Simulated assay, not measured.
Amino acid sequence: MLGKEKIERINALAKKSKSEGLSLKEQKEQKELREEYLKSMRQSFKNQLKSVKIVDETGNDVTPEKLKQEKKKDNNNGYYH
């Protein structure tokens, strides 16, 4: 997860961009921070998905095989969710 300071900086740059524009250096910083934020959010979402188990109305596990394989791969690498 991104730190509070970085999120505040993203928001400050967005506000400045709308009101007065950004310098080239600030545009580069904004792009890098946004990419870091998106990477963090994607990883967080993937971790959430790996903890999901899908069960049908009769109680059968119908979790997609691809998701089961990802969970198994993580468990074999020593990660526990």
Rank of each mutant, 00 (worst) to 15 (best):
residue 27 Q to A: 07
residue 56 D to V: 10
residue 58 T to Y: 02
residue 19 S to G: 04
residue 64 P to S: 01
residue 16 K to H: 15
residue 73 K to Q: 06
residue 23 S to T: 13
residue 77 N to V: 00
residue 35 E to H: 04
residue 1 M to G: 13
residue 53 K to Y: 08
residue 71 K to V: 12
residue 28 K to C: 00
residue 65 E to D: 11
residue 63 T to G: 01
residue 21 G to Y: 07
residue 21 G to C: 12
residue 32 E to M: 04
residue 68 K to W: 04
residue 78 G to W: 10
residue 43 Q to M: 14
residue 41 M to E: 15
residue 3 G to T: 07
residue 7 I to H: 05
residue 72 K to L: 15
residue 36 E to M: 07
residue 12 A to T: 11
residue 11 N to G: 07
residue 17 S to D: 15
residue 44 S to D: 14
residue 28 K to R: 05
residue 30 Q to Y: 08
residue 30 Q to R: 05
residue 70 E to P: 05
residue 48 Q to F: 15
residue 46 K to Q: 12
residue 28 K to Q: 01
residue 62 V to N: 01
residue 6 K to Y: 02
residue 61 D to K: 04
residue 9 R to Q: 10
residue 21 G to A: 08
residue 22 L to P: 00
residue 65 E to A: 10
residue 17 S to G: 14
residue 61 D to A: 00
residue 69 Q to D: 11
residue 22 L to K: 03
residue 24 L to S: 12
residue 55 V to P: 08
residue 8 E to K: 13
residue 29 E to N: 00
residue 9 R to N: 04
residue 55 V to S: 14
residue 3 G to H: 03
residue 30 Q to H: 10
residue 6 K to W: 02
residue 29 E to F: 03
residue 53 K to C: 10
residue 50 K to N: 10
residue 39 K to G: 05
residue 65 E to Y: 08
residue 41 M to G: 06
residue 75 N to W: 02
residue 44 S to Y: 12
residue 24 L to F: 03
residue 2 L to M: 13
residue 57 E to M: 15
residue 68 K to V: 10
residue 3 G to A: 03
residue 37 Y to K: 05
residue 26 E to K: 02
residue 52 V to A: 05
residue 34 R to W: 00
residue 25 K to S: 07
residue 64 P to A: 07
residue 76 N to P: 01
residue 60 N to V: 12
residue 26 E to T: 01
residue 33 L to G: 04
residue 76 N to F: 12
residue 14 A to S: 15
residue 1 M to C: 13
residue 53 K to N: 12
residue 26 E to Y: 03
residue 52 V to Y: 11
residue 12 A to F: 13
residue 23 S to Q: 00
residue 75 N to R: 12
residue 62 V to R: 01
residue 47 N to V: 05
residue 23 S to L: 02
residue 67 L to F: 06
residue 9 R to E: 05
residue 66 K to M: 07
residue 81 H to K: 14
residue 13 L to G: 01
residue 1 M to H: 10
residue 32 E to P: 04
residue 65 E to I: 09
residue 62 V to M: 02
